[in-house]
Design a protein around this nucleic acid. Structure first.
Lengths: 236, 236
DNA sequence: CGATCTTTTGAAAGCTTTCAATCCAAGTGG
DNA sequence: CCACTTGGATTGAAAGCTTTCAAAAGATCG
C-alpha cells in the first residue's frame, strides 16, 4: 500500500469497509456487527480530553472540530471533520483532544472491538487505515507550515483554498464556500484572533478575490489569485 | 491495537520487526530481505520534495529534520528524527517534504516492496505502523498548539521540555540537553526567527530555569518551572 | 421590536521581526 | 603560538504586524 496513492483503486477505502453491510451494520468476516448512531446538537461534545476511548466515530452528517486546550483556556483547533471523516482512528491522542460539533451532526459509533476485528480479519483494512492516517499526518504538517510561517492574510487564503479543494473533491461547486464554523472557530484553527480573521476576510473582499454574500458564504472570484495570496506571491 | 497504549507489550514495535534478522537483514515470513545503509554528511539531503519515493528509512545514527518550503523560501521544520525513528512511513507526504541531516548520520534504507511484504505477511506489522503514525499525528497536533497559540518563550520552553522528555524515555539524563540543531533550525521548527529564539534562551537563563554551558548544551535547573513557562503558568 | 450573539471596524498597545552590530568558538595559515 | 577568517549566536533599536480594548453594525429569535 505504501506504493499506492490515496486515490489508487486497488486498496479499498475505509468507507468501503464501514459501509459493507446494511446501514447500521459492518460486515466483519462472515458476521455482522451492529453499530449505533449518535445525534449531536450544535456545540455538543462527542468526547473531552482525558476520557477513556470507547469508540471510533465516522461523521455521517454535519461538521465537528477537534481541539486542544492550554490550562489558561487558549484553544487550538486541530482539524475540522466533515462527513466521511474518521474521528479517533489515532488512538494515542485521546488524552489531550476534545471533539465538538459545530452544528447539528450525526456520527456512527464503531466500538473499538469492532475496529480490532476489522484490522485482524479484513485484509486491506489496516492498509486503508494507514492511508487515512498518512493523509491526516500530511495535512497536519501542512497546517504547521501555515501556523509557523504564514501571515494572517496568507493563513486565511490558505484556509479558503483548502475548503475550495475539498468541494472540488466532493464534486461540489468549488467557488461557493459554505463555512459551517464561526469566526472564533476559524481563529482558533489559524492561530489568530476573531478580529484578525474578520479583517483579512475583508481585505480579500476588497482585493476582489472573494465576495461575502453573508458571513458564512464565500464566493471565490479568482482562485488563481487566491492561490497567490495563500503563499505570499501577491504582496500588499 | 486501538485499545493498546503505545507502550503496551502485546503489540511488537516497528523496531522489533526491522531488527528481526541479522544486522542488515529483515526477516519477512521465512525469508530475509537485505537492507542497505546510507551514510549522510552533515546537511546532506536524504530526499527532496517531488522525488518519487523508493524507500522508507530508519535512523540509525545522528539526527535529521523533515521540512517544508514556501515558494519564497520560508521554511517550516516539521519534525526532528532521532535514532530509531522512521522516515517516510507516511507515504503521502513525499511531494512536499524534504529530509536533511543536521549532523553526520546513518540510515537504514528499506525498499518499499519490503514494507509491503512486511505489511501483508507479518501479522502485527501494520498495527505497529499504525501505532507509529498515531503517535506522530498526536505529536504533530501538539506542535500545532505550540505554533498557533504559544508565545515565543512558551514555544522555546516547550521545545526544551520535549527534548528533556525524550531523554527520559531513552534513559539519558533529562537535565543535560544536547541540541544537535542550530538556532536557525530551532527557529524554523518553532515558527520564529533566530534572534527571537536566542533572546528567549537568554530569558530562560536569566530566570534561572536553564543554564547554557555552550550554545548546544542546555542544563535544566528547574524542570517544574520550565513546565510552567511552557504553557504560560509563569508570566513575565 | 427588543435582546443577544456574531461580525466588523477603529485606535492604541505589545510582541516579534527586521536591520545592524558585536561577540564567540573553531579552524587556518603565517 | 597567535593573528586572521568564518559561521553561528547574542544583543540592541526601530519597524511592523497582530492583538487588545472598545464600539458600532448585523443577524437571529422569541
Amino acid at each position: 500500500m505504501l506504493t499506492t496513492s490515496p486515490n489508487s483503486t486497488n486498496v479499498p477505502t475505509i468507507a468501503q469497509f464501514l459501509n459493507s453491510g446494511t446501514p447500521g451494520q459492518i460486515k466483519i468476516g462472515h458476521s455482522f456487527t451492529t453499530t449505533s448512531e449518535k445525534v449531536l446538537e450544535p456545540h455538543e461534545h462527542l468526547f473531552v480530553a482525558g476520557e477513556a476511548q470507547s469508540h471510533v466515530y465516522q461523521v455521517l452528517e454535519g461538521v465537528l472540530c477537534i481541539y486542544e486546550l492550554l490550562p489558561d483556556g487558549r484553544r487550538q483547533v486541530v482539524t475540522f471533520c466533515y462527513p466521511g471523516d474518521l474521528i479517533g482512528a489515532d488512538n494515542m491522542a485521546r488524552l489531550t483532544h476534545n471533539a465538538e460539533s459545530l452544528c447539528a451532526a450525526r456520527v456512527r459509533c464503531i466500538p473499538l472491538k469492532a475496529m480490532d476485528r476489522l484490522i485482524s480479519s479484513e485484509p486491506g483494512f489496516s492498509q486503508a487505515l494507514l492511508n487515512v492516517l498518512s493523509t491526516e499526518l500530511a495535512e497536519t504538517r501542512d497546517q504547521l507550515l501555515s501556523l509557523g510561517r504564514k501571515s494572517a492574510r496568507e493563513k486565511v487564503a490558505t484556509f479558503l483554498l483548502r475548503i475550495s479543494r475539498r468541494n472540488e473533491r466532493e464534486g461540489i461547486d468549488a467557488t461557493q464556500l459554505h463555512l459551517p464554523m464561526t469566526r472564533a472557530e476559524i481563529a482558533d484553527y489559524l492561530g489568530l484572533t476573531i478580529e484578525t480573521v474578520s479583517r483579512n476576510f475583508t481585505k480579500l473582499k476588497v482585493a476582489g478575490v472573494i465576495g461575502l454574500p453573508s458571513s458564512t458564504l464565500v464566493q471565490v472570484n479568482d482562485i488563481d489569485r487566491l492561490e497567490l495570496f495563500a503563499d505570499g506571491g501577491e504582496h500588499q
